[in-house]
């Protein structure tokens, strides 16, 4: 055995114990009935084949949670991309005080998810939240039911996520912008290229790999959203903001204790995320 390989063994063993083991266990449990809410349910695990997966396919609430998650992810990603790009371009062009602005824009990233969620739960409270009070102070006629109206709740949550996470995209795109050779920009300016032309033919192509990386990372993160809907709306009103991770948690440890079913949902959702990301990357490759 090569020396390099021997050095890898401890890391591989640790990974097998903390990642591969639980993963295989989770997949195995997804083919079992394991309901902790039954008498002595924790000790009573029975193989049930694909029963959980059949139930999942017939479960309208699971489908609802996936649609909610996709809608949330799409809106949040679009807003975050626009904000992230705009902020990165602005930061790249600022010469004085760039560090101050950059720190200010990155500040929300330093907050933990539960802090953001509880903060916005208070801010968005329709009757007592400061956001509606401020809007009404400047002339809005009646309070907006940000998280109590089924048609508004997902956009509201997406905006919260955008406030919190746009800095992520800003950071990555800014790194891309700073990798563009200054000589290229200077030459284009000498040639009389407009700002839009420079963006289209120099900035965008140079930053594209960074943008793609950022989009993939954010999309994975967005699709596994949990804390914001769990803490701000509890999935409501009704099921209007119930995201897949919240639904999975509710079926398992969070409420119903149906560990087998919960694992089947988790395995399936992980596959869905992989398929979505693979599809996007395939589309990008086809474009190239």
């Amino acid at each position: 055995m090569k020396t390099q390989t021997r050095f890898m063994i401890p890391a591989l063993v640790v990974m097998a114990i903390v990642i591969l083991g639980p993963l295989m266990w989770g997949i195995g449990v997804s083919f079992c009935d394991w309901n902790w809410a039954e008498p002595n349910g924790m000790d009573n695990i029975r193989v049930s084949g694909i029963k959980n997966y059949i139930e999942m396919l017939q479960d309208p609430l699971f489908r609802n949670s996936i649609l909610n998650t996709f809608l949330f992810s799409f809106i949040a990603l679009a807003v975050e991309f626009i904000l992230g790009m705009a902020c990165a371009l602005l930061l790249n062009s600022i010469r004085n005080g760039a560090l101050l602005y950059r720190t200010a824009l990155m500040f929300p990233l330093m907050l933990s998810d539960i802090v953001v969620a509880l903060m916005f739960k208070m801010l968005l409270n329709p009757s007592q939240g400061i956001l509606n009070r401020m809007l009404m102070a400047v002339g809005m006629a009646s309070p907006i039911n940000w998280v109590g109206d089924a048609s508004l709740v997902i956009p509201s949550l997406a905006l919260v996520d955008a406030w919190w996470q746009s800095g992520n995209l800003t950071l990555i795109i800014l790194a891309g912008l700073q990798s563009i050779p200054q000589s290229l920009i200077d030459m284009s300016m000498v040639d009389g290229a407009s700002a839009f032309t420079r963006f289209r033919y120099i900035v965008f192509p140079y930053t594209q790999p960074f943008i793609k990386t950022a989009i993939v990372l954010r999309l994975i993160d967005l699709m596994r959203v949990f804390t914001l809907p769990w803490a701000i709306t509890g999935g409501g009103p009704g099921r209007a903001s119930e995201m897949t991770q919240v639904f999975i948690y509710t079926q398992g440890m969070g409420k119903y204790m149906r560990m087998g079913y919960s694992n089947a949902l988790a395995v399936t959702f992980a596959l869905i995320v992989v398929v979505v990301i693979a599809f996007i990357q395939k589309c990008w490759k086809a474009e190239e």
């Binding site: 409270n125 309070p143 109590g148 709306t233």
Partner: peptide
Amino acid sequence: GPVGSEAFTWYDCTTAFASGA
């Protein structure tokens, strides 16, 4: 109920009533 009360927990309800809302 007040706007948004479809999401009210007991805490929100008692706060609303105790604050005169």
